[in-house]
Design a protein around this nucleic acid. Structure first.
Lengths: 195, 195
DNA sequence: GTCTATAGAAAGATAGAC
DNA sequence: GTCTATCTTTCTATAGAC
């Protein structure tokens, strides 16, 4: 039988992060108080400071954790034989992963401005590392002549913006399944980069 | 000679909106206090309430004004002869207009969640009206057989997300002029929708 | 039209009891 | 590991002088 109160450090930390992510994504970092987060977890506000030195660090941990997981998950995707196949894998991976973590994605794009300079730079570096993954695919395809792009960096940013936009409208049980969305977006990307 | 103090209602209102837009875009609605806005204009906090009933109304006026101007500006663009030409006009218009009003665009995408239900619905309706402008172009091209799209609504959202993404990276004096950016993005859109 | 002053609520963070 | 209590600051919004 579980204790009604006492020590729960192993479970409380993750629950704080989960509730903070949910609340920050829904209302915005600045609009959410430490008291609201504590209440969602079932704690008093002071107890949060056992798990984070301050509010900004809590946000940073969420963003850093998300970017680390994003890069690790992409690293797990097996390499394909040709740039077009690699690009298809990236498009499908990006849509799938981002839909699974909509709240974290939203935070990572919207709440960067609430970080101090050092924390901001750390997240930016990870974001650029992810963009570079796509850009190397585009560069390889460009070199082989299967893609025709005026600028690979701009194409990278354009494609990522387009794919991430799925998160703003996709709803479970809507007109399209995730698989259908992947297919439709892949069709558009494939044509947009084609030689 | 201008008075040092006294009545300035005709100039103070616009200045409040300009400074509020700048501060909200930079730090986020919830993170900016009425005192900060007043200080940026050169007023005391209480004086702001001569111009807005509360903080949320100030935000709503900014978003509503932006959407109205966006729709009005698009209405001024002369109609082109064919769907591809219309689409090119839309792409160039969207990039140009959004780069000219980067702060307002940022607000309109990020701070909707700080509006109450009625204000939220009003802005959403205007956003959908703008999306419908693009979708009718895509539908017309689809009907004429010059575009090939699995779904015009999804293509609408994908294209707008891609174009609006320019605002996240474009900097004056960077590698590309505005005209060059318009051209590169139009090339990608043109190919993505082509039959 | 703007200011000073302030009411009243809520914020982030800390101290010490248990 | 968590709670209660509190310090200190800051917030939105209002009242009344000028």
């Amino acid at each position: 039988m579980a204790r009604k109160s006492g020590s729960h450090s192993e479970i409380t930390g993750p629950r704080i992060r989960t509730e903070a992510r949910r609340l920050f994504a829904r209302h915005g970092f600045a609009a959410v108080s430490m008291r609201q987060i504590a209440a969602a977890v079932g704690l008093q506000a002071g107890a949060l400071y056992l798990y984070t030195p301050d509010k900004e660090s809590l946000l940073f941990d969420l963003l850093k954790g998300h970017m680390d997981e994003l890069l690790a998950a992409w690293a797990e995707v097996p390499a394909a034989a040709s740039p077009p196949e690699q690009l298809e894998a990236f498009v499908r991976f990006h849509i799938r992963f981002n839909l699974e973590r909509a709240e974290a994605v939203f935070l990572s794009y919207m709440e960067l401005r609430n970080l101090g300079p050092d924390n901001f730079a750390a997240i930016e570096a990870l974001r650029r590392a992810y963009e570079n993954e796509l850009e190397s695919i585009l560069r390889a395809g460009q070199a082989e002549g299967c893609f025709a792009l005026p600028d690979t960096k701009l194409a990278t940013l354009a494609i990522i913006a387009m794919l991430t936009g799925v998160n703003t409208w996709f709803r479970e049980g809507g007109r399209f399944s995730r698989a259908a969305v992947e297919q439709i977006y892949w069709d558009m990307v494939r044509k947009a980069v084609a030689a």
